[in-house]
Design a protein around this nucleic acid. Sequence first.
DNA 1: TGGCGACCATCAATGCTTTGATAGCGTCCT
DNA 2: AGGACGCTATCAAAGCATTGATGGTCGCCA
Lengths: 144, 144
Amino acid sequence: MTMPPEERLGSHLKRAEQELMAAKTAAVRPAGLTVPQYAALLALSGSPGISSAGLARACLVTPQAMTVLLRNLEEAGLVERSPHPWHKGLLEIHLTESGRGALARADGRAVLVERALAEEFSPEERDRLVDMLGRCARVLSTLR
Amino acid sequence: MTMPPEERLGSHLKRAEQELMAAKTAAVRPAGLTVPQYAALLALSGSPGISSAGLARACLVTPQAMTVLLRNLEEAGLVERSPHPWHKGLLEIHLTESGRGALARADGRAVLVERALAEEFSPEERDRLVDMLGRCARVLSTLR
DNA sequence: TGGCGACCATCAATGCTTTGATAGCGTCCT
DNA sequence: AGGACGCTATCAAAGCATTGATGGTCGCCA
């Protein structure tokens, strides 16, 4: 209507992110994982025993989305949930052995994608890109 | 595991895109549209009579995703589908009056988001950002 | 102690997206 | 003419994500 797509920064941003998702999806798929599942397992490995809500915050999704995701992971035997020692109603989440294996397999290939992406740029360019992306996120979040 | 999140360009890219989606979702919601619906209506307004498959290509989604999306738009009375004059089985898609109205309302607010984003950067920065995002998409697509 | 507010977990409805499979129609080439 | 190939459209199943609503638990504080 009033603004051509090539002028919309959002179009370019979306396109890049779409390719990123496609590449990562292909990377983690052989491990039997989806990208969100991989992200959750990765966060979980860094914070064992974290709650579902905490994991949701770490992965930048809603608690509801994480509930669904965790149910799938639990049914696949990749994570376990156990009641919190003194806080009734809370659940601690832990990786299973099988979960650790799947994460390791997925991570190896996912890191290759990140490395290929990083190697496209010089260190100065990387810094500039990270800075600009951060500014995008900041200005957009103020609009919300 | 082997690579901290802050070093992963993908994390920053994803974060920025997530904020973009949130801002756009909030922008087009008052018009009763979702972001993908808005994108489809926008593409449709530029190519009246385009097929579902063509629209899917224009929006960078699969034909199946577009079928679902169009069904919702058709049920909402925002688009119409009519059989192709001589090619049986093909369907031409057109905006309805109501669809044009919703698009106009959504577009006005969506453009504000794009403008706020654009104004965060100088023209030189914008060019650099677009260039770098294009390089991201290119290198990632070769991995696929 | 009683209550209020914050947080956690979960159900339900809706929508987008993907992969996989099926089926019709056209075009081009043998 | 017949057949292969390609494009279109659609169904089905599964996962991810959102909003909205519910019910349970803790902790602080009047």
